[in-house]
């Protein structure tokens, strides 16, 4: 049973990777990414309006998925507005080789959501914003579009195939904004189990590139 499922995923991934190679004309060609590039390069208002109409409802649903302490539904509209303003302002820095428009806009939304919460729960000036953590070093290393597209396709093809218990945790973490510790409390599972489910999900999706963590001592706490 288990093996069969794995095989299906493998076949799909293989098929998708081939598609990626065939599609590889050196450029990313999905409509949203092209529009985002045009907003960045030409301050294209029409493209921006289309992006807005596509992404605003998704962003609103992302905002409403939040189960952060201190988050309330009224913040959703603010988040959509703040994210879309940032999209306009930062579009010139969008690099289609690294991420699709959807992924890039997700990162903007994630950063905004965290910063809104941190500002709410903190009266003092915060020296860092979440996007500061994501600042690229000056001498940036090029990523190949091919590699990125492959990994996107792996995520797309395999996310839906994950066992429910792994999918559930990824949703809690990415959509609800729960830490692993919070997820472990809510699900009544040891923290180590939550973390190993996360790691298993990553292995299944085959998106790991960095070497494994060296220190076994530090694993399951």
């Amino acid at each position: 049973m288990f093996l069969k499922k794995e095989e299906i995923v493998d076949k799909q991934t293989e098929k998708n990777s081939r598609v990626a190679v065939l599609n590889l004309a050196g450029k990313r060609s999905d409509q949203w990414s092209l529009m985002l590039v045009s907003v960045g390069e030409n301050r294209d208002r029409q493209a921006f309006a289309q992006l807005f109409k596509h992404f605003a409802p998704l962003l609103k649903s992302f905002a409403q998925a939040s189960r952060h302490e201190g988050w309330f539904p009224g913040l959703s509209e603010d988040l959509v507005q703040e994210v879309m303003i940032k999209v306009w302002q930062k579009a010139a820095g969008y690099n289609p080789e690294k991420a699709s428009a959807t992924t890039w806009i997700y990162t903007v939304a994630r950063n905004c959501r965290i910063d809104m919460l941190r500002r709410k729960s903190n009266t003092q000036h915060l020296p860092l914003e979440n996007e500061d953590f994501w600042h690229e070093p000056d001498e940036e290393t090029p990523v190949t579009l091919l590699r990125q597209k492959r990994s996107e396709e792996k995520v797309q093809a395999s996310l839906a195939q994950l066992p429910k218990e792994q999918d559930e945790i990824l949703r809690k973490v990415y959509l609800e904004g729960k830490s692993h510790a919070e997820a472990s409390n809510e699900l009544g599972l040891p923290l180590g189990t939550v973390k190993s489910r996360v790691r298993l999900a990553l292995q299944k999706m085959q998106i790991l590139v960095a070497p494994e963590f060296q220190d076994e001592l530090l694993n399951d706490h």
């Binding site: 998704l58 962003l59 991420a99 997700y106 990162t107 990523v143 990125q148 995520v155 990415y174 990553l202």
Partner: peptide, 11 residues
Amino acid sequence: LSLNEIGAQLM
């Protein structure tokens, strides 16, 4: 970059 895609896909 790949981990961000999980969030983007779920969103």
